[in-house]
Design a protein around this nucleic acid. Structure first.
Lengths: 147, 147
DNA sequence: CAGTATCCAGCTAGATACTG
DNA sequence: CAGTATCTAGCTGGATACTG
């Protein structure tokens, strides 16, 4: 067994670290918001979907219907849209309201928690707009330098 | 061709939207920071790696060596660590310094830009610590309700 | 309208082995 | 010490088809 000690130790350290990561709130948050469609749905419901609107881009948060979201987020598959909406509902970030008309009408709306998250995303957006140009410039420089 | 018009329109809309997304700074930022190892390297170099330290968790940003990072981020493969470091260097978020000792000594350090990003990540962390508990609670409730 | 169900291709993380 | 190179398995997202 003596020969396995090092490998075992490494494995244990890895397991511990994985556990630490799994418990880390920041990690969980990132896992949540790093999803492409999550951010887009949040932006749409928060009134920040830059698309299909004039230069103002101003928008109040407002409820939207499934089909409306589907149209706004061109390119999302039904599977992903539904999956995303479900997970957001599960986490209490949006609410789902089904009105029993014929055919049924379903609307989605940000909760206070979802709104809070959306506000934080604005912070991200601010940083991105202020600094991503620098990042991209550095990237371009690096690429030409090593080309 | 008349039968393809609808499909074509949809495809075009998708292409346009994809282009819009590709140009969006926020999206680019998220693509960058949503990587597991990126955030961990940033945290490590920024002095925020919660692991292996007492309750204080305070830490000044400081340069670290490859092997040091490798040890701190237990579970990272050499491939991913190198890949992550290279991409961060490419984006001008960290600097790589090789000292020609024998054997070579390589240190990585946050740039001002990287530091700025690290600071923003603190904002994320704050939100996560303030609200992720709510999210998790909602999730648990949802699961029991639908079980 | 608002989904569900199924299947499959592509990408990527990780394991492994080797090196200046 | 600080990497590079290669191969593969698993997950995830998308296309497609069907339904209350």
């Amino acid at each position: 067994m003596a020969t396995m000690t090092a490998a075992q130790k490494r494995e244990q350290a890895k397991a511990e670290y994985d556990a630490f990561l799994a418990a880390c709130p920041s990690r969980k948050l990132l896992d949540r918001i790093s999803d492409k469609w999550v951010t887009l749905v949040l932006a749409a419901l928060g009134g920040d979907s830059a698309r299909q609107r004039g230069a103002d881009c101003g928008g109040e948060p407002r409820p939207m219907r499934y089909s409306e979201l589907s149209r706004l987020l061109a390119g999302v598959s039904q599977k992903m849209l539904t999956q995303t909406l479900r997970s957001l509902e599960r986490d209490g970030l949006i609410t789902r309201t089904a009105t029993p008309t014929v055919p049924v009408t379903v609307t989605y709306e940000l909760t206070d928690l979802g709104l809070s998250l959306h506000q934080m995303m604005r912070g991200l957006k601010t940083w991105a707009e202020a600094h991503m140009d620098d990042v991209l410039a550095n990237r371009a420089t690096y690429d030409t330098r090593t080309a």
